[in-house]
Nucleic acid binder design. Structure first.
Lengths: 156, 156
DNA sequence: ACATTGATTAGAATGATTCTCGTTCTTATC
DNA sequence: GATAAGAACGAGAATCATTCTAATCAATGT
């Protein structure tokens, strides 16, 4: 087993640089590092269970509870983000660039949708009670992805 | 117990008129009617459990399972809408006017936010893969409601 | 009347997530 | 370089919203 805890300055390589920017108490244990690494390498917004299985390939002794702990820690440190589709299980995303998610209503896949040049201001479109402080807007786009569109039209 | 099933034309009064517009198989049993009525009278986006307790006041024998059934039926008939905040329990809303929801991050209350005159087009703000068919965008606005804002600022 | 269909119920089952608690590891202190 | 305090870990139990199951009942069509 590699040495356990490691505060940010320990290894100023790729990943750690990213962490150093955020400062605060981002203590990266090997498990947290693995979980984070798996997410960085995934672009399919895996669920906790997906992450568990992918990390298990490298650290077979890791438990699902630890994966949840790591994901919670990484989320509250701001290193990753939770993605929610309706009430189904949480998915996780290491893409911190501002973006929203597109959900295919047929295959269920989640894709990133990156901002165009125009900034989005929710209060331009919807009226909230006077005195409301808006902190953010969650936007998720639904529809049919290109793959499912071509499959569906091929059947007709 | 009142007579059981009743298809739309049975009682062309206020509520039923609204149902008739949608046509299709909107069979309103007394329980479904109660559940719908409770939602129409509520503007606080109650959970299934909230609805259960409110309906229980009028129909004490109703079960939680039936409330879920009724809510599902009403939702799939398009008479009501489900509202989701992160992964917490589903809330329900009988306001069918186009609107989005504002969630107070402090007290958790959900308020309707009605559209301004400008139409919202998600593809104006975010780029989706070519060939994607967008069917809708879910928008939820987060922040602090007027009540919580005044409470918070009063403390300082 | 009788069969069929759908609605209703209580309670069990599910599934994602969180909690608990004993154990192990890390870091600071002596 | 022992040790105490505090995190992190893992296994399994617990929780909570929701869905399923099986039985019963009501209404409608033959």
């Amino acid at each position: 087993m590699p040495p356990h805890h490691s505060r940010i300055p320990s290894k100023p390589s790729g990943l750690d640089c990213r962490l150093a920017v955020l400062g605060a108490d981002v203590r990266l244990t090997p498990h947290r590092r693995e979980v984070f690494q798996v997410l960085v390498e995934s672009n399919d917004h895996p669920t906790a269970y997906d992450v568990f299985h992918r990390v298990k390939g490298r650290s077979p002794s890791i438990s699902l509870a630890t994966v949840y702990n790591c994901l919670d820690h990484l989320t509250s440190s701001g290193l990753i983000k939770q993605v929610h589709v309706e009430r189904s299980q949480s998915r996780y995303c290491a893409n911190l660039h501002e973006h929203v998610h597109f959900h295919c209503d047929i295959c269920g896949k989640v894709r990133d949708a990156h901002p165009q040049t125009v900034a989005f201001d929710p209060s331009h479109f919807w009226q909230v009670p006077a005195g409301t402080q808006i902190s953010r807007a969650d936007v998720s786009i639904h529809g049919v992805c290109p793959e499912c569109t071509s499959k569906t039209s091929a059947q007709n």
